[in-house]
Amino acid sequence: MESIIQIQKLSRRFGKTLALDGIDFEAGSGKVYGLVGANGAGKTTFIKHILGLLRAQQGQVSVFGLDPVKQTQQILKRVGYLSENRDLPDWMSIGELMRYTSAFHANWDQQFCDELLTRFELDPAQKIGQLSRGMRAQTGLVAAVAHRPELLVLDEPSSGLDAVVRNDILNAIVRTISDQGSTVLFSSHLLDEVERMSDHVTMIQKGQILLDGDLESLCDTHRLCDFKFASALQQPPALPVVQLEGENRSWRALHKQSDEQFAARIEAIDGQVLQSRRASLEEIFLAYAGHGKSEELAA
């Protein structure tokens, strides 16, 4: 698989705040990469480094084998980007924005553009300044994908989109782009959305990568087990787990062992496994990120 994005030991500091702390990341072609993290985790800063909008203070960033600062133009021609704050020129009409953007991309697909505009029910004559937040996001999305980019970067794409657009259209667009062999990198704090759309998940917290791997293997390797003891425990049992919660007799653990291995350990300390199942992405994230952040994410 061809490597599209390569990041090594990337660090970034804004004043006294360490926004990114020695991040390593690699993305190949034809896959959908979900970047998940709480607000302020460093997702947008990470994305801006990929686009060359921020210069790496430490570490190296390479996109299509090019340097995003030295060869920005070559990279941006092959990238579609939807920014988090949907920064679009208010004074242009939707049609003018599409025409303007097409001038920068030799492989602009006008038919695809028109198709998407119709699908989103966007009127090309309407001014961007008069659009609602959701329509603005849809317009930005069309401008980002109509040249069928080799790398599509979406920063919080579902923010402002209604449930129908989010579930059906966004998913369909991302899949269309991915199926044509392009790479999609999108950030979100909605775990169900990342789970639904991604092939690969990277969890960021406080500028560090907590977890990085294929979604399937991540969920397969993390098991959630409920178990109990005959008498109440004064202290949590000593077990090799990612997270352990409970009290007295009933406990729940997120672990990375096989069900058999973990059941044997529980039995060895006089416990009994009630049930064991595959963990969801949300459960994995909450376990890694900690309880405080979990509430923020769940919201």
Binding site: L51, L53, T72, Q73, Q74, I75, L76, K77, Y81, S83, N85, D87, L88, P89, F104, H105
Partner: peptide, 11 residues
């Protein structure tokens, strides 16, 4: 500094 201006593929 607007992002829209900064992501144009222009030298």
């Amino acid at each position: 500094f607007g992002l829209f201006e900064r992501i144009r593929p222009l030298s």
